[in-house]
């Protein structure tokens, strides 16, 4: 089973609450602004992500989703939509 962790870059307000709750310190705040003017969170170290969904649980903006993907090849497993 593999999972797709996506941060909706333009839905993120960069509050940083996901960053502090991540048990694996995967997330950081980007230096690049999104279309709303916020600096969104991104997965700085996606390879450490254990898909525990702590970040999703904490995010006040439902900007982080994790979906299950078919386990064919190497599914893109990180923040394609962000600038990470």
């Amino acid at each position: 089973m593999s999972y797709l962790h996506v941060i909706d870059k333009d839905g993120c307000k960069g509050c940083g609450l996901c960053v502090i709750v991540c048990p694996k310190k995967v997330l950081e705040i980007s230096e690049q602004v999104n279309t709303k003017g916020y600096f969104p969170a991104y997965q700085a170290r996606p390879e450490d992500c254990i898909h525990c969904a702590m970040c999703c649980t904490m995010c006040p903006d439902v900007a982080i989703t994790i979906t299950e993907v078919a386990e064919e090849k190497d599914a893109p497993e990180s923040t394609e939509e962000t600038d990470g």
Partner: peptide, 14 residues
């Protein structure tokens, strides 16, 4: 791992 998605009762709005 866990999946996590926006609930249906919530609108797709920022």
């Amino acid at each position: 791992g866990k999946t996590f998605q926006k609930p249906e009762a919530l609108a797709d709005q920022v």
